[in-house]
Design a protein around this nucleic acid. Structure first.
Lengths: 182, 182
DNA sequence: TTGCGGTGAGAACGTTCGTTCTCTAGCGTA
DNA sequence: TACGCTAGAGAACGAACGTTCTCACCGCAA
């Protein structure tokens, strides 16, 4: 009966299935079966599959940045906090079934066809970059180093997904250490 | 009549359409119409849409790494050659309709459903990493810096695609300069 | 008990997909 | 001219897609 709970269930399922198999490969019927929601209920919560993709990315954006920030907030020292980003990333990338960055994947598959998805991805990446820029500024980094931190994080996520290993996060962390020392 | 020419035409078309719109969004009929080849001819050249995706990625792998190597070969000085990678990347990313890394996109959309595509992507990334490692070794870089160069290139490609601007390549290049100097 | 609004399961709809099949037009050879 | 072959255009196929509709069922007010 609770619309909030049902939406939560739908988006949780969508995140799991879309991230694991891509968008085109997951039909509405799979979403229905896995969420336990009636198709009619799903369409009463969100008007289309595309809207589900957008809502799922927004939900994940909040959760993902929240978890990262919570981890970083547990670390003291400006430089250590920048490095903590990559420690968290390594932990996160080591989780089972990791398949790269959900936003990059979404952009690759839907970016052209769905302007809404493209905009959601740009917003997420903008927020992440902004957050990392803030951490770097506190550590006294130059903008050039801050940009490198962002790009290394992006590269680490993609690479870890393809290689099926979180090693790239360690490599990125090592690079950031060099940049912070330099 | 020439199977080579027809295959070339098919893969050229597949590369253009798949890269621009994703795999699921491009039907065999679009491939047929844009290549000018009969559907029957297409299926006589390659057995399935999946095989077309794999063949297209392999063709692009050869071309992409070839162009990069040709550009780098025109540059002298070990450090300059490493930096030249990012100059080429910036030029390449500035081209119209750039949408990130074709292999990362393919992996995101098809990686789970098509083991052949996943393997092709891993091979490509492995070759690129190997090539960059070689350039870095000649420049006397540590393996840590070589890994950073690869990750920065990956991050720059993804980011440039999403931002619709080659600025990320310049940022990556600046980071590599810092790493090479450090 | 009767009637009713809203919900859920799933059938149905119209497309579109990847793939295969049919048919015909055009060719070289006799 | 007559024949056999190839290959092209596109119809046909079955499956699957996103979305909508039907209808039986439920709790609940009278």
């Amino acid at each position: 009966m609770s619309a909030t709970d049902d939406l939560e269930r739908l988006l949780y399922t969508a995140e799991k299935l879309f991230y694991e198999r891509g968008y085109g490969s997951v039909g509405m019927d799979a979403l229905r079966a896995d969420s336990g929601l009636a198709l009619k209920r799903i369409y009463s919560l969100l008007p289309s599959k595309d809207a589900i993709a957008v809502a799922m990315l927004e939900r994940r954006d909040v959760a993902w940045r929240g978890e990262l920030a919570a981890f970083v907030d547990g670390v003291s020292g400006a430089r250590e906090r920048v490095l903590a980003v990559f420690a968290w990333l390594e932990e996160w990338l080591a989780g089972p079934g990791h398949r790269g960055c959900a936003w990059i994947n979404a952009f690759g598959e839907l970016g052209t066809e769905s302007p809404a998805v493209a905009a959601t991805v740009r917003e997420h990446k903008g927020r992440v970059r902004e957050y990392l820029d803030g951490l770097c500024a506190e550590a006294g980094c130059s903008p050039a180093v801050a940009a490198a931190v962002f790009l290394l994080a992006e590269g680490a996520m993609s690479t870890a997904g393809i290689e099926g290993s979180p090693a790239a996060a360690r490599e990125a962390r090592a690079a950031v250490e060099l940049l912070l020392a330099g």
